[in-house]
Write a protein that binds this DNA or RNA. Structure first.
Lengths: 109, 109
DNA sequence: CCGCATATATAGACCATCTATGGATAGAGT
DNA sequence: ACTCTATCCATAGATGGTCTATATATGCGG
């Protein structure tokens, strides 16, 4: 059959920012969280996740800190910056606007 | 400011198929229709539209026919095939599933 | 000590979309 | 006549996000 993306392209940064807005997390945890909350519909591949986190770091929307996990492993914890929180707001409103627009096209008889 | 796509990537084929499901249209008309119905939020650039139509033709989801427009111009009218109608249904349900999943992630407190 | 889940990261491929063109014609306005 | 604008098609090349594949490393349970 058709091979499809596990993600709606263009939404990954927003999903990461939103996940981090709840609590700081390491990369692996972000992927697990999105997968779990989306009920396995959205799967963030490592090859998408880590480049995305690098982008977000470069833009100053998240910051990173090496720590130990509860299970005593080394992991890089990411958290939202003030700029990241602002950016999340922007992306959410743009996303909603776009969804509303797509909805209009899809519902037009 | 941030430069962003005028479209949510991954939705173009679906929007075209849905537009053609209402009535056959030429390329330019498809772009105008989506722009109008979305109230100027979604803009389909020509460099996105025509390659997309070629893809859809190759997959057999639309067929094309040269005709005259009401204003006496030559134009290529695209219309949905049976396979295209089926494909539209598939894409709509996948899209809704994905939107529901994204919604769960975005609404999680 | 073996296997598995946890954890980070990069290189390269792929593909959809955008930018930038190029071309053609009907009709309106001057 | 002439020009301008909107209508109409199409492609080449750049861009950029996501995926596949790979590499590395470690804590823990059996």
């Amino acid at each position: 059959m058709e091979k499809r993306s596990e993600l709606l392209p263009g939404t990954l940064d927003m999903l990461i920012l939103k996940t981090l807005a709840r609590a700081p997390l390491h990369g692996y945890g972000i992927a697990l969280s999105i997968k779990r909350i989306s009920e396995d519909v959205l799967t963030v591949e490592e090859g998408s996740l880590y480049p995305a986190l690098q982008r977000l770091l470069l833009k100053g929307w998240v910051k990173a800190e090496w720590k130990k996990t509860e299970t005593n492993r080394r992991a890089r914890y990411y958290s939202l910056t003030a700029a990241g929180r602002k950016q999340l707001g922007i992306e959410l409103s743009q996303f909603e606007q776009m969804m509303a627009a797509i909805g209009r096209v899809l519902q037009e008889t």
